[in-house]
């Protein structure tokens, strides 16, 4: 297990260096980055001055080394627009995105697992129809469309939720979520919910034919006990990898959802920085997102190993 973790850590670090490489050269590929950054009527002197300031007149290798050494300590330079370090802006927006992603994941699990379990344990029943329908719709309905419908129905017509923005409730120095997170997180978690329903359902259908489930029946255990302690427990191990991947996707910040709900998170910041051609910020967000995804994949693999005793106690 330790060897396995070590090799996965090294692998992850290599992937992140690859990401940095791509981010750096992507900017170069766009041609002369300076010409993209200045306004159209800038004088050649102004352009040259900016080039000097940004260090774009140095040899490529030096620039890359500079970029990497900065990136390793989280320094991606200043945002042109905000005149602040890019990483600082990201960290300011992070809590909103984490809140949105975490609530979205919790909602997906809270809806997806019970529905998948009910569907898988009673095939062809009403529950199963519901589970299959939810799985299909979750994976096919575009989330921005659902977001708009939700706003119209629950915010505008029923007035249960605010139409946009993030409100928090301060408690012992923490900013706790309020109902303003419900609609955006439900819309954001739609696809994840669909995946979890489908996965849980098919895992239950498969596992309930296993020999050890028959053994559980032969012991005279109740159906509920068997479904929760034996079937769900075995299904939850492969579920870990789905949850890990999905959480990475949720955390990368959704441009659509955050824009529709004016949610002050990373997705919103990314949309803004693309509009502003704020390269330092775009690079920083791209790297940060990759970091989150790679780290979550690593954690998922470790959690998977810890959850499955056959791997945990393997060599």
């Amino acid at each position: 297990m330790q060897r396995y973790i070590l090799s996965r850590v090294i692998q992850s670090i290599l992937i992140l260096f690859g990401v940095l490489f791509i981010i750096f050269f992507m900017l170069q590929l766009t041609g002369d980055p300076v010409s993209l950054m200045v306004s159209r009527n800038a004088t050649p002197e102004q352009i040259e001055a900016l080039r000097e300031e940004m260090g774009f007149n140095r040899p490529m290798v030096i620039q890359f080394a500079d970029f990497i050494t900065g990136a390793v300590v989280g320094d991606f330079g200043m945002s042109l627009r905000h005149r602040q370090p890019a990483m600082k802006l990201i960290l300011e927006r992070l809590p909103a995105t984490v809140e949105l992603a975490a609530v979205a994941l919790l909602l997906s699990l809270a809806i997806g697992i019970p529905l998948g379990l009910l569907g898988g344990s009673n095939p062809k029943s009403v529950w199963d129809t519901l589970a299959r329908g939810a799985g299909l719709m979750g994976q096919t309905i575009p989330n921005f469309w659902l977001a708009l419908i939700l706003i119209v129905v629950f915010s505008v017509n029923l007035g249960w939720f605010p139409t946009f923005g993030r409100e928090t409730y301060e408690f012992m120095g923490l900013n706790l979520p309020t109902r303003s997170v419900i609609l955006p997180s439900f819309a954001l978690g739609l696809f994840t919910t669909g995946q979890i329903v489908r996965f849980t359902r098919s895992a239950v259908l498969e596992i309930k034919n296993e020999d050890y489930v028959r053994t559980a029946y032969s012991k005279g255990l109740s159906e509920n006990h068997i479904y929760i302690r034996h079937i769900l427990r075995n299904a939850s191990i492969p579920l870990i990898s789905i949850v890990g991947v999905q959480f990475g996707y949720l955390l990368s910040g959704s441009i659509y959802i955050e824009t529709i709900f004016s949610w002050p998170g990373l997705g919103n910041l990314l949309a803004e920085s693309i509009g502003n051609r704020d390269f330092a910020l775009i690079q920083a967000i791209a790297f940060f997102t990759s970091l989150v995804v790679v780290a979550l994949n690593l954690l998922t693999d470790i959690a998977y190993g810890l959850a499955d005793p056959r791997i945990r106690y393997g060599d």
Partner: peptide
């Protein structure tokens, strides 16, 4: 089941829950 009649299955590896 279990209380009055116990059952020993043929293949104990697959008949035991691997994660319990």
């Amino acid at each position: 089941r279990g209380g009055r009649i116990g059952y020993i299955f043929q293949d104990a590896l697959s008949a035991l829950n691997p994660v319990m």
